[in-house]
Design a protein around this nucleic acid. Sequence first.
DNA 1: CGGATTTGACCGGCGC
DNA 2: GCGCCGGTCAAATCCG
Length: 322
Amino acid sequence: MSNEKEDPYHYDPFHYNIQLGANRPVSVFPFFNDNISGYNQQAPTQNLQGFSDPSFMSFTDCLHGSMDHYNTLSRALDVSCSSSEVISPVDQDGSRKIGAGEPAATNQYTPSTPNSSISNSSSNDGATEEDPEKIKKHKQPKESTEDVDIDGDAKKVSKTKKKEKRQKEPRFAFLTKSEIDHLEDGYRWRKYGQKAVKNSPYPRSYYRCTTQKCMVKKRVERSFQDPSIVITTYEGQHNHHCPATLRGNAAGMLSPSLLASTSIGQTFPQDFLTRLLPPSNQGDQTSIFYQTHDPQHQHQLYAPDYGLLQDLVPSFIHKKQP
DNA sequence: CGGATTTGACCGGCGC
DNA sequence: GCGCCGGTCAAATCCG
């Protein structure tokens, strides 16, 4: 733990490029083309023909412009609002448990929920669904003395389970240069904890999606190196519609027609991001830099699968220094 | 009053 | 085995 640097899963964006705000070149998120004249100068387009259509909305737009609409990140982050189909990043490493007797969760999103986080709660779930209720884990057993035995067994079981479950949910982190800690992303979150971060004066906040049965979590913390940067780490995928979308213009933000014309396809946000997610938790961390029109809001997206990203947008990727 | 946040305690993993 | 640390719980508190 002390060396988070080595733990890809625990990757700490702060450990490099903290100078994001500095004069570091910032690339526009390629999948949405660039209406951002100033920032994409270095953006080669040769490999991005599919993305160069000016009609595309820039990621930036998504993140920044949509802020006003209360939709923002959700669109870019997940917004599985439209499709239940899910790519399973976790599948790729074969670590999927479904086949292993691990109950396939009730919904297709299981993949993204290798039951890991939940796994902590081990207890629960051998059961079936990661009920947000999950919870009750440790404390409860404590109280009911009768469960002691059971609990004991459960522990053993969970222990073995844990080994394979070691892998946690796919995550990706967002760096946002903003004064606001908790950025609106269209989903409703409930804060369930806050912890001081080692070596940082800024605390880390833990949020959980308030939607029932949605196990998505996110952590928000501020860079201690550059307090103007907020790191938002998402874990898991939403298994429900984005609340904001349902009532908003979100649909227009990334209309299928636009997305359809990209090589990414209609499921873009979900699809793409899912693909960015770690096939395993051991890959390199890769980052994509992008920026909003407003210089006050720069963003950086981290993903672990460098190879994939390189395939997709070779020119936009900055590989993490080992 | 119901839902969200705060905050101290607890648990489990991991390194030494 | 021990201690550290990240993550989570849940009672208390806050807030609209």
